[in-house]
Nucleic acid binder design. Sequence first.
DNA 1: CTAAAACCTGACGCTGACGTCAGAGGCAAG
DNA 2: CTTGCCTCTGACGTCAGCGTCAGGTTTTAG
Lengths: 125, 125
Amino acid sequence: MMRIGELATRTHVSVRALRYYEEHALLTAERTPSGQRHYPESAVARIHLIQQLYAAGLSSRTIRDLLPCVLDGRATPELLHRLTAQRDHLTTKLAALTATRDTLDRVIANAETSLRTGEACGGGE
Amino acid sequence: MMRIGELATRTHVSVRALRYYEEHALLTAERTPSGQRHYPESAVARIHLIQQLYAAGLSSRTIRDLLPCVLDGRATPELLHRLTAQRDHLTTKLAALTATRDTLDRVIANAETSLRTGEACGGGE
DNA sequence: CTAAAACCTGACGCTGACGTCAGAGGCAAG
DNA sequence: CTTGCCTCTGACGTCAGCGTCAGGTTTTAG
């Protein structure tokens, strides 16, 4: 059982953020008689998962709703629906970001050329 | 030449957002003597590009710096460097999001199974 | 036993990308 | 000329995800 500071350093997530997660029911902790939080090893993985979902653009509310399903396999038809919706949303986003990266690649190639051939440059169109 | 309302409806971006973009030098507009903004057709594409970069996680400041390069091919070595950094950052992000989607796929498959076989369910590990 | 380090609960601050409201001017139609 | 919609410039409001400070307790190191 580790305390909040250790969990923070091990996950590279601030203590404040961990308390914030608990406040928003993304994370629970056992308490010692004096009130300090104690976490099991599994909390590390849980934090990583939470961060992953945040990075995917989910809100804390959404994460809170979907987490039980993700961790315990506890799914209702409605949760399954929301989960699928999020995955589809993510797929769409991935396509958009890939397109953006391609755009950047083209711009970079163009810029490199124009820098080499001497400043002024027309488009590739 | 269109006015701000038309540009807004055509790009599905609010009038407020367009003014915000101008305020932050992402977008410029000609003005009629009475002070109304007038945009050329090319503004539509420009807005789409701005939205694309926002979706990629860039800040308005970053977009402002990189836009001249992206639109006009005007690149300095420093801008080129920043551009490349952004692309690499995006590549990393794409990998992470792809991993997240795979996680969601697994969770969904698991949940579907547990719903079919009757509620309780252990992990696939 | 004591000092330092870590933890606790509020509670206010911050940032970015707008939403929204107020008050006033511009413009095509009848 | 007036009605009605569009536009203008401030300027304050909002929301999430924390950062940060205050004031006090607990745990640990020596």
